[in-house]
Design a protein around this nucleic acid. Structure first.
Lengths: 190, 190
DNA sequence: CTACTTTTAGTACCTGGTAATAAGAATGGC
DNA sequence: GCCATTCTTATTACCAGGTACTAAAAGTAG
């Protein structure tokens, strides 16, 4: 590739990175026959984030689809729902939830119940789990009934903190603190 | 969180990272009340990659879905297709392909035509673009007809290199070298 | 030629690691 | 209790892929 005038190079560079988002500044520099410093200046000028930031954004995008659950996809049965306040759901552990040998429920099913309830309890069209701090206290077995109780601890604009406690009988088996990002509208279901 | 015996910590740590893939070793160390070195030893032992590797994998997963195009979603009209050899497609630039003011086609439509043809020309059930080295030579305008010609330059097991040249009339407007990953089967369409 | 713009290079620092080494602490068996 | 083993922690050197800043060199236009 021949060297381009700056304006043309900026244009081509933006396209190049857009279509090769895994590319390093060094690779771009080789491609356009300029120094790495020039590439970085160009990227700044174009407002294109560095490779690691781009990867992070793409990774987040990848997770968004997994985590965004409409109400009708809450894991378990919704027993009670007080939007922006609290909720309760029930999950009976069945064959497909457990490791085949041990009869112990796989952690991610327990998490899924809690996570989906945490999202569902937020009164907004779009609500996503941004982060979670969770704890498993006891294995859950085939046939046991998990009662997840969600409590909205805090709900500022765009961010909500939801605590979910899951019990079997009176015994606590799982607890989680979920940070939920949501759009700032206050009406999800009329 | 109380300190856990190693076996229990390994188990919990695996779950924690799985469900919080954006978490740093430092955060994990705080969470489990152990040193960062211990977390790293644990991660190694569990075979869990470092944060940046995880992000990269997730980002790649994010792109996979975008890039995988079945034949019936090739952008433009397939004129000729010699599997594992060559292909030709035609794209007429319409209103929805252009910037509203300038009548110039947005680059990514041109790319999409080429990319989808490059993927389609590979005789395999699953073929994905791994990387591309492309060049726009001339803007393409509303109403112009882009003829993309793909030529398979090399096709070893799992990897193929496909060159795509796009012309308007006899004028070259775009060229690209695509590296296509594919599963190693040799029969996509019987 | 001169003023301005662009490019290049170098330095210091950042983040989030890996790898290797070694000492300290904890644990279990005799 | 002692000793061997395992686990934990810390330190050092290094890596990759940057940002931020400074300054000199090169290029461009009037």
């Amino acid at each position: 590739m021949e060297r381009l005038p700056k304006r043309e190079r900026l244009k081509q560079l933006a396209i190049h990175i857009q279509e090769n988002p895994f590319v390093t500044d060094e690779d771009v520099a080789h491609h356009f026959h300029v120094s790495i410093q020039t590439v970085r200046l160009d990227r700044m000028e174009l407002g294109i984030p560095e490779l690691r930031e781009r990867l992070k954004t793409m990774a987040e995008r990848s997770l968004d689809e997994v985590r965004s659950l409409p109400l009708d996809e809450v894991i378990g049965e919704v027993i009670d729902l007080q939007l922006d306040k609290s909720g309760i759901s029930l999950l009976e552990v069945r064959e497909e939830h457990v490791f085949s040998r041990t009869g112990i429920a796989r952690g991610h099913h327990i998490f899924a119940q809690a996570n989906s309830l945490a999202v569902a309890v937020i009164d907004d069209v779009i609500a996503l789990t941004a982060s979670a701090d969770i704890r498993y206290l006891r294995p859950v077995r085939l046939g046991e009934k998990c009662v997840a109780k969600a409590l909205v601890k805090r709900n500022s604009r765009g961010n909500a903190k939801v605590e979910v406690l899951t019990t079997v009988g009176s015994e606590l088996v799982f607890e989680g603190q979920f940070l939920i990002h949501h759009t700032k509208t206050q009406e999800k279901r009329s």
